[in-house]
Amino acid sequence: MTTTLSKPSEVGVAQSPRPGRSGAAPRRRSSVVSRQKRAGWWMIAPALVQSVVFITVPTIAAILLAFTDYSFSGAPNFIGGANFVELFGDIRFRTALVNTVLYVLVVVPVSMAIALAVAIALNQKIRALGAFRTAYYIPVVTATVAVGTVWLWIFNSGSGLANGVLALFGLSPVGWLTDPNHALSSLMVVGIWQGLGAKMIIYLAALQGVSPQLVEAANLDGANRWQVFRFVTWPSLGPAQFFVLITSIVGTFQVFDLVYVTTKGGPGLATNVLVFDVYNNAFGSLRLGYASAETVIMMILIGGFIILGRRLQGANTHD
């Protein structure tokens, strides 16, 4: 299939000049190739339309609007890089940038490590395995609004479960979401917990794909459990690690709903993150041009993080 599609002209050119051979066969092949090409385009058309309408066009729109003062009314005026200049002098943006990077730097590696540990545990022959796997996956399929509401109650400074537990040990209550020194950390805990299940499932699938022959060979060579993990399991997880890393970076950078439901970016700017700031600038302050400039910076930042992650894992991805 691949050969036919990728080298249609070569087939035709190679055969047609031969003397004494009819040109019908190559024409037939050429016609088949054309039909296959058309069929290919038809098959990718829905995905292509979806990508163009919902990804390409909004991306281009955001980039164009980033250089305007568009605020939902009137025509957008081109203002060059003024939005970008203003952004870097804006304390809200700078704080959001720092908070987001901190959030990513903590949530991504910690959740990946915990998810891997859980996956390894759930890859053993233990009782109620299905129940455990389901329990870890439930947060993934639960709406973030519901998750946020439950955590709001857990973190309520007056009557919340977290402070109730502290009280059992005679400890003073903590303003989990109301103290600027704790609010972002509290959201990180929720973020780690919420993303655990999806990562765990991918790791679990990858663990089950580790060659038992390799493990057995390592055991026969006298490798201990750590050595088996370090030299057999870990390298086999490369592609899964890469996939989890990339999706985690992108997903974590775009944290919004959790902040929207629980803290609204507060107290002060303690939990203001980039997507929430974009939302505030676009729909709170009605400055779509400014918000678009922030989006462009965020896209560049995500790209940078992905390149960094790719380089860090490059040797281990088999891609």
């Binding site: 809200r92 609204k264 002060g268 709170g284 009605l286």
Partner: peptide, 19 residues
């Protein structure tokens, strides 16, 4: 006001928390 209101929210918090 809709622009300034957003800034008011976080700024008042910052003062109340002594930041």
């Amino acid at each position: 006001w809709l622009e300034v209101r957003t800034d008011f929210n976080s700024s008042v918090d910052d003062v109340l928390l002594g930041k």
